[in-house]
Structures are given as structure tokens and as C-alpha cells.
Amino acid sequence: MTVITGGVCQGKKDFAKAELGISDFDIVSGKKTYDVKTICGYKAVSDYEYIIRHNLENGIDAMSEFKSLVMTNPEIVIIASEVGCGIIPVDESENTFREEAGRIMCMAARDADAVYKVVCGIGKKIK
């Protein structure tokens, strides 16, 4: 597994394509599908934080879904925005989302072969 993170609109997907030699056809967006089986057919999934949000909103165990994705496709590239740097949200569900996304990304990074952080389109290998 490879993890690519960084803020929103920082060129993470373009970096993934250039660095890992994949194309748009290899990437599925978490804004378009949440289905693990569908995602497993791709080399990379972008906007993964949307999948976490969707799962939480629908009472699905986001961590288990993530584990099952990685188990089925251990080579997958996870592209997800960092979401934890703002003020702690007053809204309880927003707070739960940030924390769950943070925990999932920590686990992803722990198990990943490589982790990149992208700032202003520039990726840096942090693991």
C-alpha cells in the first residue's frame, strides 16, 4: 500500500500519477463510489476521506471497510486529504469524522510501504 496525503486542492492526484506512473483510468474517486469491491479493481482511490464520511453517516464501520479494502488489494494507493488541522468542530458528527479519518490514516501509514505528503503540488516522502 502507498499513502498520499496533504491538504485539499494540493495536487495529490497529479503527484500520484507522476510519481507512481498511473493514469486517470487507474484512479477511482471516493466521491463516486464507496463500494469496496469496485474500488479493489483500481490501482488507486482518491478522496478517500469522502468514503470515511459516507460510512460514518450510514452507520458502516469505516475502519473495517478500510481493512477489507487493503486486505483485498494490498498494493492499492490511498489518496486522502488531511482533515485534522482546524478548530475542533462543535458538531459531534464532524468531530467523529475527523478523529476516525485520523485514526484510519495513522493505521494506513503504519502499514504502508511508502507515505507521501503533498504541499503546493510538491510531494515529499515521509515514510
Binding site: V8, C9, E82, V83, G84, G86, F97, A101
Partner: peptide, 17 residues
């Protein structure tokens, strides 16, 4: 760096970001 707070904003703010 205004890109990492995880919030979903209104359309105008999202366009700005």
C-alpha cells in the same frame, strides 16, 4: 495553508479554496 481543516464549506468558499 488553509487546506487541511477537513471542513466542507459553502460553494463560494469551496471555489475560493
Amino acid at each position: 495553508d488553509v487546506f487541511s481543516d477537513g471542513k466542507v464549506y459553502d460553494e463560494m468558499t469551496e471555489k475560493y479554496i
